[in-house]
Design a protein around this nucleic acid. Structure first.
Lengths: 347, 347
DNA sequence: CGAAGTGTTGCATACGTATGCAAAACTCGA
DNA sequence: TCGAGTTTTGCATACGTATGCAACACTTCG
C-alpha cells in the first residue's frame, strides 16, 4: 500500500504553492505571482503558460498569504444586528453581490443585541478588513466612532451620525416623513399618529420629526405617538392595539413596513377596524412584502440599488477612509401609494 | 508641523505588532503570542502583565498572520444563493451567531444564479476557510462534490446529495410530505395537488415523492402537479392560477411557505376562492410570516435551532472533514396546523 | 548539596505571496 | 554592430504570528 503523493485519497491534501508550481515550470515564484496579478509586468506569453500549468495542477493563490503580504484583505466587514426585518437581508444580498463584483468578499459580523459589543468589535479589528459597513440601527454611536478613530474605512448605511467623522449613506427620511404627512392630509385625514421603532435611532428620529413637523404645518393633530421598542411585526401589533384603544385616529405612520404589517393585522383582526376605510396606514422601506396584495402597504421606498452602489463606490474610491472628511449621502426615495391608505370617511 | 508617531491624527496608523509590544515590555514575541493563546505554556503572572500592556497600547493580534502561520483560518464560508426566501436569512442569522459562539467567523459567498460558478468557487478556495456550509438548493451537485474532492470540510444544509461523500443536515422531508398528505386526508380532501419549487432539488423531490406516495396509499387522487420554477412568491402565485384554472382540487401542498403565500393570495384575490373553505393550502418551513394572522399557514416546521446546532457540531468535531465518512443527519420536524387548511366541504 | 523533574522562556524558523531593485533580454535606430 | 531605451525576469526580503526545540529557572526529594 504505497503512500505516494498521487494517492488521491480523501484526506485533505496540502494545496500546491506558487513556489512549487514555479519550480515545476522552471520559472521564479515571482513570475507566478505576477501571472495572477492583473496589470503586473509580465509577458503575455509567459502569463498564459503559467496559467495553463496552474489550471493543470489545480493551483489557486493563497488569499491569506496575499493579505499578509499586501496588508490588504479585500474583505469588507458587514456589521448587522437584525436579520428579521427583510429589509436587511435584501440589502445584504445586494451589497455582497456588488462587492463581489469588484473583487471584495463579505465577512459577516452578526452582533447579538444584548451581548458585549467590545468583544465583537475586537473581532472586526483582528481581521484586517479593508472597510466596515454598518447596517444596524442598534449599535451605539460611541462604539462605532471608536472604530473609525481606530483608523478604519467605514460606511454607515441607513443611519446618520452627528459627529461628522463617519461617512453615511441614507435615504432622505425627512422627505419621506413629510411625504407621508402630505399624503395623509391630501386624503382628508386630520388626526394622525406615529409609531416609532427604536426611539433613539437616527432613522426613527428623522422620520418622526419630519412627519410631526409637517403634521403641525398642515394643521393636523398628532393624536398619539407610540413606541414599539423594536422594528418588528410584534411591536407593530402592540402599538396598533394601543392606537385602537385610544381611538379617534384617522391615519397612522409606522416607522417601517414590518411594524406596519403587524399594525395592519392587529387593526383588522384584533381591533375590528377596516384598513383603509376606518384607519389609514403607511409604512417605510418598501420591502417585497409591502407589495403583496394581502398587505399592499402604502410606503416610502428606499432606493436600495442606489444605496448599494454609492456605498461600494465610497469604499472603492477611498472616500470613506479615515483621513478624508466624512461624506454624507442622502438619496431620495419615492412615495408608493397602495391600498392601506384611503380617503377619510366621517364616522 | 512635526510628523512624529504620536501625532494621533485621523489617518490610518499602522497597528502595533506583537514584536513591538514585546520589545516594549522586554519579553520575547513568543511570550506575547502565548499570552493570547488559551492553554499555552506561560506563567499566569506574565500573561496578565502582557495583556495589561497590550490593552494600554491597543494591541490586537493580527488574525491574518495567525491564519497563515497556523494554516487555519477560523473562518467558515457560507454559500447562499437565495436570500429572498426568509427561511435563509433566518438560518444564516442563527448560524453566524452559533459560529461566533465557538470563535468562528462567517464569510458570505452569495452566489448569483446565472453567473459562472467556477469563478465563485475559486474564491471559496483561495480563502482558506476551515469549512464550507452550503445553504442552497440551486448549486449543482457536481460542482459541490468537486469542493469536497478538493479536500475541504463541508456541510450541506437542507439538501441531501446521493454520493455519500458529503455531510448533510436536513429536515425529514419524507415525514413532512407524509404528514401533509395525512392531514389533507383527515380533513376529508380527496383531490389534491402538489406545487414544486425547483423540480430537481432534493428537498423538492423528497417532499414531492413522499406526498404523492402517501396520497396514493390513502386512495386520494393527485389532481395536478405544478412547477413554479423557483421558490418564490411570484412562482406560487403563478402555480395557484394554474391550479384554479384546472379546477376541482380540494387541497394544495406547496413545497415551501413562500410559494404557499403567493398561492394563497392568488386564490383569494385573483381566483376568487376562499381559503380554506374552497381550497386548503399547506406549506413547508414555518417561516415567521406563516404564523402571521393574515396568512396563518398550515405548514411543516423545520427545526432551525437543532439544524444549526448539529451543523456547528459537525464542524467543531471534524466529522465533516473529507477523510471521514459522510454523516447525514435527518432531523424531525413538526406539523403546525393553522388556518389555511380546513375540512372538506362538498361543492 | 546535587539530581531529577516540572514549568517557563527565548531563539529561530516556517507559513505563501508581493514587490523593490538589479540583472537580463529584447527592440530599435544610428 | 553597438548603445540607449524598454520590457521582462529573478533575487531577496518583508508581512506578523505560531511553535519545535533547547536553555533556563525553580521545586522537590534523596
Amino acid at each position: 500500500m504505497s503512500d505516494s503523493e498521487h494517492a488521491g485519497g480523501k484526506g485533505r491534501r496540502k494545496p500546491i504553492t506558487a513556489r512549487e508550481l514555479a519550480r515545476l515550470i522552471g520559472v521564479s515564484q515571482s513570475a507566478v505571482s505576477r501571472a495572477f496579478t492583473p496589470g503586473a509586468s509580465i509577458a503575455a506569453e509567459l502569463r498564459e503558460k503559467i496559467l495553463r500549468h496552474a489550471a493543470e495542477v489545480d493551483y489557486h493563490p493563497n488569499a491569506i498569504a496575499s493579505m499578509l503580504s499586501r496588508s490588504r484583505s479585500n474583505i469588507v466587514g458587514i456589521v448587522v444586528s437584525d436579520m428579521q426585518n427583510p429589509f436587511y437581508p435584501a440589502l445584504i444580498e445586494k451589497l455582497s453581490r456588488a462587492l463581489q463584483q469588484v473583487g471584495l468578499q463579505s465577512l459577516l459580523f452578526n452582533i447579538a443585541k444584548g451581548s458585549n459589543l467590545e468583544h465583537q468589535l475586537s473581532a472586526v479589528r483582528r481581521y484586517n478588513v479593508d472597510a466596515v459597513i454598518v447596517i444596524s440601527a442598534t449599535i451605539l454611536s460611541g462604539a462605532t466612532l471608536r472604530w473609525v478613530t481606530e483608523g478604519r474605512a467605514a460606511v454607515l448605511i441607513n443611519r446618520v451620525v452627528d459627529g461628522g467623522e463617519l461617512s453615511c449613506v441614507a435615504c432622505d427620511n425627512i422627505a419621506g416623513g413629510r411625504a407621508i404627512a402630505d399624503h395623509f392630509h391630501q386624503l382628508g385625514h386630520r388626526r394622525v399618529a406615529y409609531v416609532a421603532g427604536l426611539a433613539h435611532t437616527s432613522t426613527n428620529l428623522e422620520r418622526q420629526n419630519a412627519f410631526i413637523t409637517r403634521v403641525a404645518e398642515l394643521g393636523m393633530t398628532l393624536g398619539g405617538h407610540f413606541d414599539g421598542g423594536e422594528y418588528s411585526y410584534a411591536a407593530g401589533r402592540r402599538a396598533a392595539l394601543e392606537v385602537a384603544a385610544k381611538g379617534n385616529i384617522d391615519a397612522v405612520f409606522f416607522a417601517n413596513d414590518i411594524l406596519a404589517a403587524g399594525g395592519i393585522d392587529a387593526f383588522r383582526d384584533e381591533a375590528g377596524l377596516r384598513v383603509p376605510e376606518d384607519i389609514s396606514v403607511a409604512g417605510f422601506d418598501d420591502i417585497a412584502m409591502a407589495g403583496w396584495p394581502r398587505y399592499s402597504i402604502t410606503t416610502f421606498r428606499q432606493p436600495l440599488d442606489e444605496m448599494v452602489q454609492v456605498t461600494v463606490g465610497m469604499i472603492e474610491d477611498g472616500s470613506c477612509e479615515p483621513g478624508q472628511s466624512a461624506t454624507i449621502r442622502r438619496l431620495s426615495g419615492e412615495l408608493i401609494v397602495r391600498k392601506t391608505t384611503g380617503p377619510f370617511v366621517s364616522r
